[in-house]
Design a protein around this nucleic acid. Structure first.
Lengths: 124, 124, 124, 124
DNA sequence: GTGGTCTAGACCACA
DNA sequence: GTGGTCTAGACCACG
């Protein structure tokens, strides 16, 4: 459903990405309950194993907490959420700068390119 | 050598990336001969099969031409090289914009972030 | 099995040809699962690597899609299948016309030859 | 020059093809002298080894005779030339019929296709 | 179970 | 010497 079997990115990580994004945008709020593994599997048209792995990964990152017998919840720890948000941003910007530098571009050129392609996207 | 065995990106694609970058920066010039499969294998510390795959991939992209018994050469077709260069740039910028938008940022904020992290990197 | 080790055409391409033909003749239908790499390897009496290459090639041609952990499937995109069918036909006819013209033959003569050799083959 | 380093067909066979065609069309006449290996190599922009192999192949087919110290000549044996001409034709037609049959086409359909693509080529 | 990558080592035709 | 193909066998992440 929201997953791409072709992409080189593993499906379970695609779902991780999606959830992290929803958290970062506050669409999923601290303390909110996530769908059960089975529900999410059906929703996403994916094997329950895959969702299990997604939740495991999110738990490792402390973005999510599993309460036995109750389900899986977004952490209430706002520091962690904030940290994650910053890390997401940082990674995007950092990767952009690194790659543009590899291509031999200066900061001014990066901004030029940015303007140029933003215009091309207008109306989206 | 220049490859990372941990990266999820396959080694043969890492070498593809490296060569494409060298072409984009004109460090590898149109018509120039690449090291033979065996030489490159030793240089890169990988199996010749892996390099073979790299060269095959580059040939599919028309960045490289192979002449039987003579070796593998950067294409002399400058249009293809230019197109590739643009595509590389576009992908980087496009991905940046998409991800930043997903994070809910405006163009002004993107440029802010860019400035901010560029300063942090000063001296590199 | 269905491959010819003497032919100048690589084995993996012979298998590609065979599958494309089966698709063109609708013996392999859109969405249908192909044998796993290992199964096909045994069926065809070749190394799994060789089949892997075959499937990779077919995927590049978009005739086949691979879903992680599930297997390899004929594309459901009927346009691509139809396009492939036409391309196969075109290539055969085009090559025939080109070569016959090189031999200095007119259209009438081509048809004559066609009739003549078709009769010779009767009963096949 | 007249050779294609990209084609899967070996260069020496591409030259063989070219010469056979010239003989079939009587552009090269029985008894006529071919250029020396060195001349032909320069003409064709190819390694002399490659031309050597070409002449060897043509000699094996008895289309050409080498007279020591004099050079290489098209055979005067018109039967062989005629046989070759027929064989060339046969192979083209035979391959066409085989492949069209593999695609599941009847004789009528073959002729249809032939007409169709001949029209498309008009003006060439 | 699936496909994907990699190594090691071999053989081949071609230039 | 060059690239191209193939086998055998291994390991991996993924579903």
């Amino acid at each position: 459903m929201a997953d791409d079997y072709q992409s080189p990115r593993p499906i379970y990580m695609q779902i991780v990405d999606k959830i992290m994004l929803q958290v970062a945008r506050n669409e999923l709020k601290p303390g909110q309950k996530l769908p059960s593994v089975r529900e999410m599997a059906i929703e996403s048209g994916v094997n329950p194993n895959t969702v299990q792995r997604t939740y495991g990964e999110l738990e490792r990152m402390q973005i999510v907490e599993t309460k036995r017998g109750q389900g899986t919840f977004i952490t209430k720890n706002k520091e962690i959420v904030e940290e994650m948000r910053k890390k997401l941003q940082f990674e995007v910007v950092d990767q952009f700068i690194s790659k543009m530098k590899e291509l031999g571009m200066t900061e001014a050129e990066m901004i030029d390119q940015l303007h140029y392609y933003m215009k091309e996207r207008e109306g989206e």
